[in-house]
Design a protein around this nucleic acid. Structure first.
Length: 271
DNA sequence: AGTGCGGCCTGTCCGC
DNA sequence: TGCGGACAGGCCGCAC
Protein backbone atom coordinates (compact mmCIF):
# COMPACT_ATOMS: atom_id res chain seq x y z
CA UNK A 1 0.00 0.00 0.00
CA UNK A 2 0.63 3.46 -0.20
CA UNK A 3 3.22 4.78 2.17
CA UNK A 4 3.45 8.45 3.03
CA UNK A 5 4.68 9.67 -0.38
CA UNK A 6 1.84 7.85 -2.12
CA UNK A 7 -0.75 9.32 0.24
CA UNK A 8 0.74 12.79 -0.24
CA UNK A 9 0.72 12.28 -4.01
CA UNK A 10 -2.92 11.26 -3.85
CA UNK A 11 -3.75 14.29 -1.72
CA UNK A 12 -2.08 16.70 -4.14
CA UNK A 13 -3.74 15.02 -7.09
CA UNK A 14 -7.30 15.16 -5.82
CA UNK A 15 -7.23 18.39 -3.76
CA UNK A 16 -7.96 20.77 -6.70
CA UNK A 17 -11.06 18.73 -7.57
CA UNK A 18 -12.30 18.17 -4.03
CA UNK A 19 -11.75 21.36 -2.04
CA UNK A 20 -14.64 23.77 -2.61
CA UNK A 21 -16.90 20.99 -3.88
CA UNK A 22 -20.21 20.02 -2.37
CA UNK A 23 -21.13 16.38 -1.95
CA UNK A 24 -24.32 15.59 -3.84
CA UNK A 25 -24.48 11.86 -3.22
CA UNK A 26 -22.50 9.03 -1.65
CA UNK A 27 -22.74 5.52 -3.02
CA UNK A 28 -21.49 2.81 -0.71
CA UNK A 29 -21.17 -0.64 -2.29
CA UNK A 30 -19.06 -2.26 0.41
CA UNK A 31 -19.24 -1.14 3.99
CA UNK A 32 -16.89 -3.72 5.53
CA UNK A 33 -13.43 -2.22 5.36
CA UNK A 34 -10.84 -2.39 8.18
CA UNK A 35 -13.67 -0.95 10.24
CA UNK A 36 -17.23 -0.69 8.98
CA UNK A 37 -18.03 2.63 7.32
CA UNK A 38 -20.19 4.42 9.92
CA UNK A 39 -23.90 4.34 9.20
CA UNK A 40 -24.04 8.09 9.77
CA UNK A 41 -21.53 8.98 7.05
CA UNK A 42 -24.08 9.59 4.30
CA UNK A 43 -26.25 11.73 6.50
CA UNK A 44 -23.30 13.73 7.82
CA UNK A 45 -21.51 14.34 4.54
CA UNK A 46 -24.24 14.68 1.92
CA UNK A 47 -24.84 18.34 0.92
CA UNK A 48 -21.71 19.38 2.82
CA UNK A 49 -19.03 21.61 1.37
CA UNK A 50 -15.48 20.26 1.59
CA UNK A 51 -13.50 23.16 2.97
CA UNK A 52 -10.05 21.68 3.35
CA UNK A 53 -8.09 18.52 2.60
CA UNK A 54 -5.16 17.63 4.87
CA UNK A 55 -2.92 14.69 5.53
CA UNK A 56 -1.88 13.44 8.96
CA UNK A 57 0.38 10.37 8.84
CA UNK A 58 -1.32 8.24 6.17
CA UNK A 59 -4.79 9.55 6.90
CA UNK A 60 -6.49 11.96 4.52
CA UNK A 61 -8.68 14.46 6.38
CA UNK A 62 -11.68 15.92 4.56
CA UNK A 63 -12.95 18.88 6.58
CA UNK A 64 -16.52 20.10 6.33
CA UNK A 65 -18.56 22.54 8.40
CA UNK A 66 -20.02 19.79 10.56
CA UNK A 67 -17.06 17.46 10.99
CA UNK A 68 -14.25 15.59 9.29
CA UNK A 69 -13.99 12.41 7.26
CA UNK A 70 -10.85 10.34 7.91
CA UNK A 71 -9.81 8.16 5.00
CA UNK A 72 -6.96 5.65 5.09
CA UNK A 73 -5.83 3.81 1.96
CA UNK A 74 -4.59 0.76 3.85
CA UNK A 75 -2.41 -1.50 1.77
CA UNK A 76 -4.15 -1.48 -1.58
CA UNK A 77 -6.47 1.53 -1.56
CA UNK A 78 -6.60 4.25 -4.18
CA UNK A 79 -8.67 7.34 -4.92
CA UNK A 80 -9.47 8.65 -8.36
CA UNK A 81 -11.24 11.65 -9.76
CA UNK A 82 -13.65 10.76 -12.56
CA UNK A 83 -15.04 13.43 -14.86
CA UNK A 84 -18.14 11.48 -15.67
CA UNK A 85 -19.77 8.14 -15.00
CA UNK A 86 -17.18 5.46 -15.56
CA UNK A 87 -17.83 1.72 -15.66
CA UNK A 88 -17.33 0.05 -12.30
CA UNK A 89 -14.41 -2.25 -11.78
CA UNK A 90 -14.14 -4.84 -9.04
CA UNK A 91 -13.51 -3.39 -5.56
CA UNK A 92 -14.82 0.09 -6.34
CA UNK A 93 -16.34 0.36 -2.87
CA UNK A 94 -17.40 3.98 -2.52
CA UNK A 95 -18.26 6.91 -4.82
CA UNK A 96 -18.48 10.49 -3.61
CA UNK A 97 -20.47 12.28 -6.30
CA UNK A 98 -20.04 16.05 -6.31
CA UNK A 99 -22.47 18.72 -7.48
CA UNK A 100 -20.16 19.50 -10.39
CA UNK A 101 -20.81 15.99 -11.68
CA UNK A 102 -17.31 14.75 -10.91
CA UNK A 103 -16.84 11.69 -8.73
CA UNK A 104 -14.19 10.73 -6.19
CA UNK A 105 -13.97 6.94 -6.34
CA UNK A 106 -12.44 4.77 -3.61
CA UNK A 107 -11.16 1.36 -4.64
CA UNK A 108 -9.51 -1.11 -2.27
CA UNK A 109 -9.11 -4.80 -3.18
CA UNK A 110 -7.77 -5.90 0.19
CA UNK A 111 -10.15 -3.81 2.27
CA UNK A 112 -7.44 -2.76 4.72
CA UNK A 113 -8.38 0.86 4.19
CA UNK A 114 -10.88 2.75 6.30
CA UNK A 115 -13.38 5.58 6.09
CA UNK A 116 -14.41 7.16 9.37
CA UNK A 117 -16.28 10.23 10.52
CA UNK A 118 -15.73 12.51 13.48
CA UNK A 119 -17.61 15.62 14.56
CA UNK A 120 -14.64 16.72 16.65
CA UNK A 121 -11.07 17.73 15.92
CA UNK A 122 -9.63 14.75 14.01
CA UNK A 123 -6.29 15.21 15.76
CA UNK A 124 -8.03 14.15 18.97
CA UNK A 125 -9.37 11.01 17.30
CA UNK A 126 -8.30 7.78 18.99
CA UNK A 127 -6.42 6.57 15.92
CA UNK A 128 -4.52 9.82 15.41
CA UNK A 129 -4.00 11.35 18.86
CA UNK A 130 -1.11 9.07 19.83
CA UNK A 131 0.88 9.17 16.62
CA UNK A 132 4.49 10.37 16.48
CA UNK A 133 5.69 13.44 14.57
CA UNK A 134 5.52 13.92 10.83
CA UNK A 135 8.88 12.91 9.34
CA UNK A 136 9.11 16.02 7.17
CA UNK A 137 8.43 18.44 10.01
CA UNK A 138 11.17 20.12 12.03
CA UNK A 139 10.00 18.40 15.23
CA UNK A 140 11.40 15.18 13.78
CA UNK A 141 15.11 15.75 14.29
CA UNK A 142 18.26 14.01 15.54
CA UNK A 143 17.74 14.90 19.21
CA UNK A 144 14.19 13.62 19.17
CA UNK A 145 14.97 10.31 17.50
CA UNK A 146 18.11 9.70 19.53
CA UNK A 147 16.35 10.36 22.85
CA UNK A 148 13.41 8.22 21.85
CA UNK A 149 15.71 5.33 20.96
CA UNK A 150 17.59 5.07 24.26
CA UNK A 151 17.06 1.77 26.09
CA UNK A 152 15.17 0.37 23.12
CA UNK A 153 16.20 -3.19 22.41
CA UNK A 154 14.29 -3.66 19.15
CA UNK A 155 15.93 -3.51 15.73
CA UNK A 156 16.42 0.02 14.40
CA UNK A 157 14.29 -0.85 11.37
CA UNK A 158 11.22 -1.84 13.38
CA UNK A 159 11.86 1.18 15.60
CA UNK A 160 11.58 3.68 12.73
CA UNK A 161 8.53 1.85 11.38
CA UNK A 162 6.68 2.32 14.70
CA UNK A 163 4.08 5.05 14.14
CA UNK A 164 4.37 6.20 17.76
CA UNK A 165 8.02 7.04 17.03
CA UNK A 166 7.54 8.66 13.63
CA UNK A 167 4.71 8.26 11.13
CA UNK A 168 4.80 7.43 7.47
CA UNK A 169 7.93 5.28 7.27
CA UNK A 170 6.70 2.02 5.76
CA UNK A 171 8.69 -0.97 4.65
CA UNK A 172 10.01 0.39 1.35
CA UNK A 173 11.32 3.68 2.71
CA UNK A 174 12.62 2.18 5.95
CA UNK A 175 14.83 -0.12 3.86
CA UNK A 176 15.95 2.72 1.62
CA UNK A 177 16.67 5.18 4.44
CA UNK A 178 18.79 2.65 6.35
CA UNK A 179 20.78 1.95 3.20
CA UNK A 180 21.35 5.66 2.61
CA UNK A 181 22.47 6.08 6.23
CA UNK A 182 24.73 3.02 6.10
CA UNK A 183 23.02 1.36 9.07
CA UNK A 184 22.37 -2.36 9.36
CA UNK A 185 18.61 -2.82 9.86
CA UNK A 186 19.08 -5.35 12.68
CA UNK A 187 21.19 -3.01 14.84
CA UNK A 188 19.49 -2.45 18.18
CA UNK A 189 17.86 0.98 18.21
CA UNK A 190 19.30 1.77 21.63
CA UNK A 191 22.87 1.06 20.49
CA UNK A 192 22.96 3.35 17.47
CA UNK A 193 25.04 6.49 18.04
CA UNK A 194 23.76 10.04 17.82
CA UNK A 195 25.96 10.72 14.80
CA UNK A 196 24.34 7.82 12.98
CA UNK A 197 20.85 8.96 13.94
CA UNK A 198 21.72 12.28 12.38
CA UNK A 199 22.43 10.49 9.13
CA UNK A 200 19.26 8.45 9.49
CA UNK A 201 17.02 11.45 10.06
CA UNK A 202 18.52 13.15 7.01
CA UNK A 203 18.05 9.98 4.97
CA UNK A 204 14.40 9.53 6.00
CA UNK A 205 13.57 13.13 5.11
CA UNK A 206 15.46 12.91 1.85
CA UNK A 207 14.01 9.62 0.66
CA UNK A 208 10.44 10.67 1.46
CA UNK A 209 10.78 14.12 -0.11
CA UNK A 210 12.38 12.68 -3.19
CA UNK A 211 9.71 9.98 -3.52
CA UNK A 212 6.98 12.63 -3.30
CA UNK A 213 8.70 14.52 -6.13
CA UNK A 214 8.55 11.39 -8.27
CA UNK A 215 4.89 10.78 -7.49
CA UNK A 216 5.50 7.88 -5.14
CA UNK A 217 6.45 4.27 -5.75
CA UNK A 218 4.30 1.92 -7.80
CA UNK A 219 5.12 -1.72 -7.04
CA UNK A 220 2.01 -3.24 -8.49
CA UNK A 221 -1.13 -1.18 -8.30
CA UNK A 222 -0.55 2.25 -6.79
CA UNK A 223 -2.06 5.02 -8.91
CA UNK A 224 -2.49 8.70 -8.16
CA UNK A 225 -5.65 10.79 -8.40
CA UNK A 226 -5.39 10.83 -12.18
CA UNK A 227 -4.86 7.10 -12.42
CA UNK A 228 -1.13 7.31 -13.13
CA UNK A 229 1.62 5.30 -11.42
CA UNK A 230 4.56 6.71 -9.43
CA UNK A 231 8.10 6.63 -10.74
CA UNK A 232 10.19 6.33 -7.60
CA UNK A 233 10.57 2.60 -8.12
CA UNK A 234 13.46 3.31 -10.48
CA UNK A 235 15.27 5.06 -7.64
CA UNK A 236 15.10 2.21 -5.15
CA UNK A 237 18.57 1.01 -4.15
CA UNK A 238 17.78 -2.06 -2.07
CA UNK A 239 14.03 -2.66 -1.82
CA UNK A 240 12.99 -5.69 -3.88
CA UNK A 241 16.57 -6.06 -5.14
CA UNK A 242 17.65 -9.21 -3.32
CA UNK A 243 20.40 -10.99 -5.26
CA UNK A 244 21.28 -7.91 -7.29
CA UNK A 245 24.54 -6.01 -6.95
CA UNK A 246 24.80 -3.14 -4.49
CA UNK A 247 25.02 0.22 -6.29
CA UNK A 248 28.01 1.19 -4.10
CA UNK A 249 30.09 -1.98 -3.98
CA UNK A 250 30.33 -5.39 -5.58
CA UNK A 251 28.38 -7.19 -2.86
CA UNK A 252 25.00 -8.84 -3.33
CA UNK A 253 21.90 -7.34 -1.69
CA UNK A 254 20.61 -9.61 1.05
CA UNK A 255 17.09 -10.34 2.17
CA UNK A 256 16.10 -11.27 5.72
CA UNK A 257 12.87 -11.13 7.75
CA UNK A 258 12.53 -8.60 10.51
CA UNK A 259 9.26 -8.19 12.36
CA UNK A 260 7.53 -10.30 9.68
CA UNK A 261 8.65 -7.89 6.96
CA UNK A 262 11.05 -8.43 4.11
CA UNK A 263 14.22 -6.53 4.82
CA UNK A 264 16.79 -5.71 2.16
CA UNK A 265 20.32 -4.47 2.84
CA UNK A 266 23.95 -4.55 1.80
CA UNK A 267 26.06 -6.26 4.46
CA UNK A 268 29.14 -4.43 3.26
CA UNK A 269 27.76 -0.87 3.17
CA UNK A 270 25.48 -1.20 6.20
CA UNK A 271 27.10 -1.95 9.55
C1' DA B 1 6.17 -0.02 29.23
C1' DG B 2 8.22 -2.11 25.40
C1' DT B 3 8.04 -5.83 22.16
C1' DG B 4 6.42 -9.30 18.94
C1' DC B 5 2.88 -11.46 16.72
C1' DG B 6 -1.91 -12.65 14.74
C1' DG B 7 -5.12 -11.22 11.84
C1' DC B 8 -8.02 -8.36 8.85
C1' DC B 9 -8.68 -9.42 2.96
C1' DT B 10 -7.80 -10.31 -2.06
C1' DG B 11 -4.62 -11.05 -5.75
C1' DT B 12 -0.51 -12.86 -7.69
C1' DC B 13 3.18 -15.71 -8.32
C1' DC B 14 5.82 -19.89 -7.74
C1' DG B 15 6.58 -24.80 -7.32
C1' DC B 16 4.64 -29.17 -7.76
C1' DT C 1 -4.27 -26.18 -16.12
C1' DG C 2 -5.01 -26.67 -11.32
C1' DC C 3 -3.95 -26.27 -6.56
C1' DG C 4 -1.78 -25.09 -2.15
C1' DG C 5 1.07 -21.99 0.07
C1' DA C 6 3.77 -17.95 0.64
C1' DC C 7 3.84 -13.31 0.13
C1' DA C 8 2.43 -8.27 -0.66
C1' DG C 9 3.09 -1.31 0.31
C1' DG C 10 -0.44 -1.12 6.98
C1' DC C 11 -1.34 -1.27 11.54
C1' DC C 12 -4.55 -2.24 15.54
C1' DG C 13 -5.04 -4.89 19.53
C1' DC C 14 -3.59 -8.24 22.38
C1' DA C 15 -0.60 -11.31 25.14
C1' DC C 16 3.67 -11.59 27.30
Amino acid sequence: MPELPEVETTKRGIAPFVVGETVAKIIIRERQLRWPIPGTLKKQLTHELIRKLDRRAKYLLFYTESGCMLLHLGMSGSLRILDKDMPLTKHDHVDFVFESGRTLRFRDPRKFGSILWTKDDPHQHKLIAHLGPEPLHDAFDTDYLYQKSRKRSQAVKTFIMDSRVVVGVGNIYANEALFMAGINPRQKAGKVSKARYEKLVTAIKQVLASAIKKGGTTLRDFINGEGKPGYFRNELNVYDRAGEQCVNCEKTIKIIRLGQRSTFYCSSCQK
